[in-house]
């Protein structure tokens, strides 16, 4: 997402129908959860670098973090 979701949510609570925002938040969460579950289940030998670093990247770099993990963090065996 181009704006941090949390700031968007805080700002919109007073100005917009909040119901419209939930899908946006849910999509971001789904991507994070899928990436984290894959990382946890994966054999460390099939992950490039340390798992903890990838966990931090997935959690703290919105949208691009999970994508980078899927594309660059996993080794095909």
């Amino acid at each position: 997402m181009l704006l941090p979701l949390s700031s968007l949510m805080t700002h919109m609570q007073s100005t917009a129908p909040v119901g419209l925002l939930w899908p946006l938040l849910a999509l971001d969460l789904i991507l994070i959860v899928i990436a984290l579950v894959d990382l946890i289940r994966r054999d460390p030998r099939t992950v490039r670098g340390k798992k903890i670093i990838w966990a931090l990247i997935i959690l703290f770099i919105s949208t691009l973090g999970p994508i980078c993990y899927f594309v660059l963090g996993r080794k095909e065996v």
Binding site: M1, L2, L3, L8, H11, M12, T15, A16, L20, L21, P23, L24, L27, D28, I30, L31, I34, D38, T63, P66, I67, F70
Partner: peptide
């Protein structure tokens, strides 16, 4: 390899967020 899921989520997020950001721009 989750390529379909990643692509769908990123595209859908951007599609949804564009009108929301436009709507909020004057306020922001």
């Amino acid at each position: 390899t989750y390529r379909l899921v990643i692509s769908v989520i990123v595209f859908l997020s951007l599609g949804i967020s564009a009108p929301i950001i436009t709507w909020l721009t004057p306020d922001l």
